[in-house]
């Protein structure tokens, strides 16, 4: 018996594929959070690219991948050096990815090929920034007190603004350079 299988527009909704997507993106988030630490000359702090990957995932793949890989990836990175913040990162960065991806997806027509810049990304980035900065501020106020939480706030804000901008740029470039990425939606 002969059969024809037509090329699908989307990859199959397989559990293995979802596990694979979240595992790989989690690893990328963790590595770029840990590895790429750009020293901020003004203070002695570091600036990492975890948020960049979270926004990339939110704008390119989808809400559930952003929720899971953003949370797990940053939490894993924390576990390696800074276990105290792992549970906070898990929730706050996960939520940040989810919120950004949901808002970015809200204004998309089903038919839209999602190749160009979408203005809703700005709103999504703002909401993501609010979620992340607010979440960390709340958690750090309890954990460290109001003072240190206030000191961290501007760094988190900066990291989000840069992360969102870089995430958008990467999302556009990667879709152009590797069109099959559009088939991964979760």
């Amino acid at each position: 018996m002969s059969r024809t299988i037509k090329g699908k527009q989307r990859l199959p909704s397989s559990i293995a594929l979802r596990i694979a997507a979240v595992a790989v993106l989690t690893a990328v988030t963790a590595v770029l959070t840990l590895l790429v630490r750009i020293p901020v000359p003004a203070t002695k702090g570091y600036f990492n690219l975890g948020d960049t990957v979270i926004y990339f995932t939110a704008f390119t793949i989808g809400p559930l991948s952003a929720l899971l890989s953003g949370g797990l990836g940053t939490a894993l990175a924390d576990l390696i050096g800074f276990p105290t913040f792992a549970p906070i990162s898990l929730f706050v960065h996960g939520l940040q990815g989810l919120v950004a991806a949901l808002i970015a997806g809200l204004f998309l027509g089903a038919k839209q090929r999602r190749r160009a810049f979408n203005p809703s990304w700005l709103l999504a980035a703002a909401a993501g920034t609010l979620t992340m900065c607010g979440g960390y501020f709340a958690a750090e106020s309890v954990m460290l007190g109001i003072g240190p939480a206030l000191v961290e706030l501007p760094f988190n804000l900066l990291q989000n603004v840069v992360g969102a901008a870089a995430g958008m740029a990467l999302s556009l470039v990667v879709r152009k350079a590797y069109p099959p990425v559009a088939e991964l939606r979760w």
């Binding site: 018996m1 002969s2 059969r3 024809t4 299988i5 037509k6 090329g7 699908k8 527009q9 990859l11 199959p12 397989s14 293995a16 594929l17 099959p180 088939e183």
Partner: peptide, 26 residues
């Protein structure tokens, strides 16, 4: 393939008397 790659496939494949195209790898 084409399950994870997309693409168009025609024909029939049987392994151990079962059609590959009718079932899942797992």
């Amino acid at each position: 393939v084409p399950r994870f790659s997309g693409g168009t496939l025609e024909g029939s494949i049987r392994i151990a008397a079962r059609s590959i195209l009718e079932s899942r790898p797992y």
